[in-house]
């Protein structure tokens, strides 16, 4: 097992109801294992070269892929590591996006500063939503977050906030140029791509360290056996709410980046479909496997297009059938398939 040193340890029992967590779930490939390291370096080199090879639309797509990957990473911290899940992460994404839009267009603050603000704000919102949510388990949590997702666009349309949010019209954002005279070399799309890449790498590093920290272990203990964790002195409610906050923070930063990249926010960009996309990305990539976020993001960026190629009218149906197939054939997602493959090759 090439990745065994990266495997999150945890009891096989207890978590079965909360999330599909495979035996010997791996948190993060790469790092110490040579194979993972090699893959990481190749991917990084490819990512660095990409904006100089492809056209602007592809660069835009890849930037959005990274944005979604960050959002999925956030949800993975909640579901994979802490055993809670959410059908409503689109709401946190929306909070992040509106934070960016309002700060940049209404207050005239530089886009770089929107990221930490969005992160902190979403942490607070997530923590507060997590406080009641931690009393809810399984389908009740799914229900509360489903309601959050469906209600989000209407929240954004509420008249008292219209002065800030622009109501149904939303807010148009002006795309930032590359700083420090780099605009001579990089156009705005390329710059945003590298900016997103840097933020993504930083957040990934953060997530990995979180998983390996004391806090991370406590979160996994709660996932695997909440009652035992409590009896060992882990304050489950604070940890679970914190997990919600951290998860929302990641997704919110993704929303912030996404708004800058798309240059526009409006209530109807943040419907239930967005929350579904993030969840689907998580499941496709593999619950509990952090790099899976990239694969999941690739799925939600490209597969709708592919489905549309196959049949314009039935894109949603193909999407649905594909999801069912994944649950039947590869319930651990792409991450599970890869792990199985590596285990086979390593033998």
């Amino acid at each position: 097992m090439a990745m065994s040193d990266e495997t999150m340890t945890g009891g096989a029992s207890g978590s079965a109801k909360a999330a599909p967590v495979p035996k010997g779930r791996a948190a993060a490939a790469g790092g110490k294992s040579t194979l993972g390291q090699a893959v990481f370096v190749i991917l990084l080199l490819g990512a660095l070269a990409l904006p100089f090879i492809f056209k602007n639309f592809t660069i835009f797509q890849m930037t959005m892929l990274m944005v979604y990957a960050i959002a999925i990473l956030g949800l993975n911290l909640l579901t994979g590591i802490n055993g809670q899940f959410s059908l409503g992460h689109g709401a946190f994404y929306a909070v992040g996006a509106y934070t960016a839009a309002i700060m940049m267009e209404n207050l005239g603050i530089g886009y770089v500063w929107t990221l930490p603000v969005a992160g902190i704000l979403c942490f607070v919102v997530g923590f507060l939503f997590g406080l009641p949510a931690l009393r809810l388990e399984g389908i009740y949590l799914a229900l509360a977050t489903f309601a959050l997702a469906v209600a989000t666009p209407q929240f954004l349309k509420l008249t008292p906030f219209e002065h800030w949010t622009g109501g149904v019209q939303g807010i148009v954002i002006i795309k930032p140029d590359a700083p420090f005279g780099l605009d001579a070399v990089l156009n705005a799309d390329q710059w945003l791509y590298f900016f997103t890449l840097a933020v993504g790498l930083f957040l990934y590093w953060l997530a990995r360290n979180l998983v390996r920290s004391r806090t991370g272990r406590a979160l996994m203990a709660i996932r695997d056996n909440p009652i035992a964790a409590r009896s060992m002195g882990v304050n489950t409610s604070v940890y679970k709410a914190t997990a919600f906050g951290i998860s929302a923070m990641f997704t919110g930063i993704a929303g912030c980046l996404g708004a800058i990249v798309i240059q526009f926010v409006a209530p109807d960009s943040f419907t239930f479909a967005l929350s579904v996309a993030i969840l689907v990305g998580l499941v496709i990539g593999g619950v509990g496997w952090l790099p899976g976020a990239l694969l999941g993001a690739a799925f939600i960026v490209f597969i709708p297009n592919v489905a549309e190629e196959i049949s314009k009218g039935l894109a949603g149906a193909f999407y649905g059938f594909f999801l069912i197939a994944v649950i039947y054939l590869a319930p651990q997602g792409a991450g599970g398939l890869l792990r199985a493959l590596v285990a086979k090759l390593g033998r």
Binding site: T79, G316, I327
Partner: peptide
């Protein structure tokens, strides 16, 4: 998948959601 975890069920519900919505529109 009757014994599968909650998350698998939710994903299947979402898949059905997409399928019915898409077929109705089609």
């Amino acid at each position: 998948i009757e014994n599968a975890p909650v998350l698998s069920h939710i994903v299947i519900f979402i898949a059905l959601f997409a399928i019915f919505n898409s077929f109705a529109g089609f």
